[in-house]
Structure formats: C-alpha cells, structure tokens
Design a protein around this nucleic acid. Sequence first.
DNA 1: ATGACCTGTCAGAAAAACTCACGGATATCA
DNA 2: TGATATCCGTGAGTTTTTCTGACAGGTCAT
Lengths: 302, 302
Amino acid sequence: MSRDLPSLNALRAFEAAARLQSVSHAAAELHVTHGAVSRQIRALEEQLGVTLFDKDGRGVKLTTAGLRLRDVASEAFERLRGACADLRREAEDRPFVLGCPGSLLARWFIPRLDRLNRELPELRLQLSASEGELDPRRPGVDASLLFAEPPWPTDMEVLELATECIGPVVSPHCPVFDAVRNVEPAVLLKLPVLHTMSRPQAWPQWLRAQGLETHDLHLSQGFEHLYFLLEAATAGLGVAIAPKTLVAGDLAAGRLVAPWGFVETDARLALWVPRRHGDPRAERLAGWLRGQLQARRVEHAS
Amino acid sequence: MSRDLPSLNALRAFEAAARLQSVSHAAAELHVTHGAVSRQIRALEEQLGVTLFDKDGRGVKLTTAGLRLRDVASEAFERLRGACADLRREAEDRPFVLGCPGSLLARWFIPRLDRLNRELPELRLQLSASEGELDPRRPGVDASLLFAEPPWPTDMEVLELATECIGPVVSPHCPVFDAVRNVEPAVLLKLPVLHTMSRPQAWPQWLRAQGLETHDLHLSQGFEHLYFLLEAATAGLGVAIAPKTLVAGDLAAGRLVAPWGFVETDARLALWVPRRHGDPRAERLAGWLRGQLQARRVEHAS
DNA sequence: ATGACCTGTCAGAAAAACTCACGGATATCA
DNA sequence: TGATATCCGTGAGTTTTTCTGACAGGTCAT
C-alpha cells in the first residue's frame, strides 16, 4: 500500500501552489477555481497524513514537509512536461503519410501537389501509392484517399469529399472514334470496351443508368489497375470507363472526349482516417481537398 | 498550452503498462479493470498525438516513442513514490501529542501511562499538560482530552469517552470529617467548601441535583486549577467537589471518601481532534481510553 | 472602519473514470 | 486442426471524482 502514489491530480495542484506560493495563482495556472485547488491540497495532506501548508497572513506558507515534497514534485513534473512536449512536437513535425491509389495519384494529385505543399506546408505531405490493393489500415499510413461505397467501416473515420461520376471516355485519335462518335449510348454495346479488374461493376452500372441491358456487353482488354486503363484510353486503344474526377484534366486538354456523359454512382471520394490515430491534420487536408474539388467544378461550370 | 501536462492518471496507467509490458497486469497493479487502463492509454496517445503501444501477438509492445516516455515516466513516478512514502513514514513515526489538563494527567493518566505505552507503542504518546487554559486548536497538538459540555464546535471531531459524574469528596483525616460524616447533603451547606475557578458551576450543579438551594453555599478556599483542589482535598483541607473519574483512585485507596454520592452532569470526557488533521491514531487512542474507563467501572462494580 | 484580497467550505453540477459484457485476434494444447 | 485460454479494444451505463459558484472568515493597507 505504501508503494501507491497519492492522487496525482492532487500532487499537481500542490506542486503548482507550492511553486507559486499561492492557491489562487495555482488555480489560474490550472484553469480551475481556487476552491478546487484548496480541496486537492487538503486531500493530499490527508492521504499523506502530513500538513503541507500553513496559513501565513492572507496567503499560505510551506511547512518543512511541504518544502521537501515540492522539490521532488516540481522536478518530477518538469521532466514529464519536457518529455511530453518533445513527443508532441515530434508528432507535429512528423510527415503526414497519405495512402492513395496510383490512378488518383497520377491523374489528379500530382498536378496539384505543388499547390498543396505551398498552402499546407506544415502537413509535410508524403504520398504513398498503393501497390496492389490499397489498405487504409496499413501501419504508418495516417490517412487514405479512395473511392468506395457506403456503408463505412466503424473503425475508420470517413470524411466524404465528393460524389463519384463515371462515364465512357475515348481518345479523339482512337481508330474506332469515327464509329463511336454517334452519341447514342447503345452503340457502345456493339464495341469491345476497355475495363479494369478493380471496378468490374463500372460498365454495368453505367449501362443500367442509361436503361440498357448489360448482357450484350463485349469486354475486351482488361487492366489490373485503373491507372493503366486510363493510359490505354489516352493512347487511343479503345473506349474506357472512368471517374470524371480522374479524366477531367484529359477532357479539358482534349486528350479524351466523353460524348455520352457521366452518371453519379453510390461511391464517394473520401478520406479514410483510422480512428485509432485521428491525426488532426487529416481534417485540414480534407478541407483543402474539398476546396480543390469544388474549384474544379466551378472552373468547369464557367 | 504545450507546457500543460497530459492527464496524469493516463500517464500513470501508461507507466504501469509499459513497465509490466501488459495492460492486464497494469490493471491488476492499479486495482482496476483492463478496460480502464486501455482507455487511459488511448486517451494519452490522443493527447500526445503519438502511438505508444503496438499490438504484438496477443500482448502489446512499446513503440520507440513509448519507450522514451516510459523511461522518463517511470523515473518521475518512482521519485514521487519515494518522497511520498518518506513523508508517510515520518507521519506515522511522529509522536502523537495529546493535550490534557494537569488534573486529569496527574490523577488518571499517569497511573495508566505505562500500560498505554505497552499496549499502543506505535502511538509514541507524548503528553502535553496545558499551562493555563487548554487549547485544543494549539498547533502541534494532535488531540486533546478534556471534560466539556455539548454542543461541540464544528471544526473539531469530538470522540466521547464517558459521562462525567461529580460529587463532594473529603479526606477521612480532615479536621471537619466528624462534622460531615452525616450523609445528609444539607449539612454541606453549613460548611465552607473548597472549589476551583475553572468549574464555578460544580457546586451549584450538584446541590441543585440534590434539591437544595444554592444561595446558602459558603465558598471558602478557591484554587486556580482542579489539580490543586484535589491535592488540597487529599491533604485534608476541606470538602471539595470533583469528577468521579479523577478521584476513583483516591476513593479506592481510602485517601478520600464520598459519602454523599455523585450525580451525572451534561459534560463528557471526550477526545477532541482537529478536523484539519484527523490523525487516524486518535481513533485508536479513543478506543483504548474507552476500554480503560469501562474496565475501571467494572472493577468498581465487582 | 472599509475595501481589496486570500483561503476554506459546502451543496449541487459537471466531468472523468470505471465496470461489465462482448468481440476479435493470437497463442497453446490435445 | 479445432478447442480453449488469454489478451486487448470498445461501447453503454453507472459510479466516483472533481469542479463550480456562492459564501464566510481572516489579514492587510488605506
């Protein structure tokens, strides 16, 4: 029992009061009322069975026992303060690691990276393109940016950034471009289309949204990653289906066209933050990303 | 803000878990459930913005940040533990100072002091006979033993030990003894009686209890302290009035007789303990005193 | 005396910590 | 290879601690 520490909050209150020679000043430092500090000191005196303060005029004065305890307590708390401050500072200085699929990284993020680093330098953003499947729970990753459909897992805080719109895109230099320039969506059913393993539902989703049957679909070349699919499309290999966000740049530059329009899906572009960590910088990043996605839309509308 | 310490209870939970490399063992050490410790560690990690533990199989392992914090925290807490244990030990070893009127000290306490020191050696009892008025609030006095009537002051814990009975006593060798051996109380009104300044109400109280008028009372020699009054009575100077407890020894030894009996007053023999200190040893002393007072009564009855 | 200032105390309110029960993951044993 | 035991994390609800706000008493300077 004697190995047990007394109440640590009481010790902290005592230490502050002893250091400042004043219950009221200690209360101010601890952001509480003087009554709270007075109580804590009383409790500590009872636990130790020792008088720590005597009244001295209208203030207080340490007893010899109090003096000895103050010396130890002040040093102990000062060390703890220092160690905690170091840890906090390092946590703040640590780069923020953002997991991100390669396609999103290449087509959307890289062009905006410079501005991000300028506007949010304290983030020290470090991008980690996923190899294979993106795992938002991978240790060392502070947050992940990805397209996905609700429901969200409970162990992640999901900050939604934008809805997803998908639609067929094709290069104007594509050999079949003349055949497909007809904006009637049904024409696409007659053509072999490019697709990706990671989004097998993309074509059926879009076709259903157009009121077309999906069983006539002719899938041709498939790619493991969306990133390669988009490269293939811009290279003129055929008609691909892609999220609008990822091809907005290509559309603006004329490298791709999307004559058949886009449809909104249930998926969301969202920032996934493991609840375990909950880095406050994730919120800042989400805010900035929302601003960028908004700006892009405004730019298009004008 | 960064000068602020994180939650100290969280820090203590972390320190225990880090030292024992186990949340459950830490919980056992702190006498709480593992859930409580887990929560505290989680809270600390959030406050510092740093991961302190990683999962390791079915246990936990410190991160490098956790390792650094543990080193500091363990030392800091160990120092605090040591300082507090020292203070507690000294508090325990410190003599227990009991304030006591000289009469009670001489007539009741001193004959029992030897047994008390044998039966409660850890008390290291130190008796402080009051000079002049006994002040139960005097600094340095852990408790005071005195006769007094309720109501009790609120800043004192009053442990009642026995009721007070007072009555006239006289030495068998007193010159007037033959005159007063008549047990009719009224005879006392005809004699000059010894009294004390500190209990001016003693005689009137007793007379009223006998159904006698008080205005006929002839006070003769007065003494400042009860102690001297009793000395005078045993020396045969006259009839005194005294608490039964203080003259029980003299009655048993035949140095005094009390043919007129005793009456119970409103006063109590009680141990007064300043609430500010509340030394737990006061309870032990009160228990022992009650036992002694009881024993004396039983002894008389038999 | 009066006002400024400080501390101690109380009842009730607010906040923190705890418990209990459950779920998921990992070792150990048969 | 299941079955079992152990360990940690989490959520709802409750208990315990702590704080507040108001007041009382004491000291000091004017």
